Simulated assay, not measured.
Amino acid sequence: MMQPADLPETVAVFPLPGALLLPRARLPLHIFEPRYLQMLEDALKTPQRIIGMVQPAPVPSNDQALHAIGCAGRVTQFSETEDGRYLITLTGISRFRVQHEVEGFAPYRRCEISWCGFERDLGKCETDQAFDRKLFLDLLHRFFASQQLSTDWDSLTDADDELLVNSLSMLLDFDPEDKQALLEAPCLRTRRETLVTLIEFAMRGGSGEEALQ
């Protein structure tokens, strides 16, 4: 497990809309743009192998704006294709707060960041004592049916609280701002409640039905 002293004050950031990384979760990425290939190669040269995932912020007057909170991941798997692309996996370490962007000669963006306030991310898996798993899975069955989605229900049923909630938060097709709300949730319970709200909203379609009590 990575310690606070191991975390850098400056990280390369990958501003990818809709891509959500959460602590202890795994995010597969396909890297092919030259600037991000360089970012990956530079990250692999460091002991931490850290890349920060940050979503662009919807600021009409500034198409380079970033959300204030992102999540850092360690490159834990990578393979190179014959044409020079990379398939990598980032394992989430901790969220961070962007302080300011660092100017330099790198073709990719770098930010000075603060890890303060996210110490819990470096600890053990979170639990949700108020989690009614049966009620949640019932809602999930209805949602997947309404969206014509399929999944490995045995794996979902067996997953622990954090893995279940975080995996769904990352995988389900929500708007980038909804993904950001899931990222910024202060604890697993709040993230689960936010996830339920988003699922209910998608199912209602404005009708007010399918509410989870």
Rank of each mutant, 00 (worst) to 15 (best):
M1L: 01
M2Y: 04
M2G: 02
Q3F: 03
A5I: 03
D6V: 01
L7N: 02
T10F: 02
T10I: 05
A12Y: 03
V13A: 03
F14N: 13
P17D: 13
A19G: 12
L20M: 11
L21K: 12
L22P: 11
P23K: 05
P23N: 05
R24N: 10
R26M: 14
R26T: 10
P28Y: 05
P28V: 00
I31G: 02
I31S: 12
E33F: 10
E33H: 15
P34C: 05
P34T: 03
R35V: 04
R35Q: 14
L37I: 12
L37V: 15
Q38L: 12
L40W: 12
E41D: 15
D42R: 13
D42W: 11
P47D: 03
P47H: 10
R49E: 03
I50A: 02
I51H: 04
G52W: 10
G52F: 08
Q55I: 15
P56Y: 02
P56I: 07
A57Y: 02
A57H: 13
V59H: 08
P60W: 09
S61K: 12
N62S: 10
N62G: 06
A65E: 12
H67Y: 12
H67D: 00
G70A: 01
C71E: 00
A72F: 07
R74G: 00
F78T: 09
S79E: 13
E82D: 13
E82V: 13
E82C: 02
R85D: 09
R85F: 12
Y86C: 02
I88H: 09
I88Y: 05
T89Y: 02
T91P: 13
S94N: 00
F96T: 00
V98D: 06
H100F: 01
V102C: 05
E103S: 08
E103Y: 01
E103M: 04
A106S: 15
A106G: 01
R109I: 04
R110C: 08
C111A: 08
E112V: 10
E112Q: 08
S114F: 03
C116G: 03
G117A: 09
G117I: 01
E119K: 00
E119W: 00
G123W: 02
K124H: 09
K124D: 07
D128F: 05
L135S: 14
L135A: 13
F136C: 04
D138C: 09
L139R: 07
L139C: 09
L140A: 01
L140R: 14
H141G: 06
R142D: 14
F144H: 05
A145V: 14
Q148P: 03
S150T: 15
D152R: 15
D152K: 12
D158V: 15
D158I: 08
D158Q: 10
D160A: 06
D161F: 00
L163A: 09
L163S: 10
V165K: 09
V165C: 04
L168W: 00
S169M: 03
D175C: 10
D175H: 09
D175F: 15
P176L: 10
D178M: 08
K179Q: 14
Q180C: 08
Q180F: 11
A181V: 05
A181S: 11
L182M: 08
P186Q: 02
C187E: 08
C187V: 01
C187L: 07
L188F: 06
T190E: 07
R192C: 03
E193K: 07
T197Q: 01
F201A: 09
G206Y: 13
G208L: 07
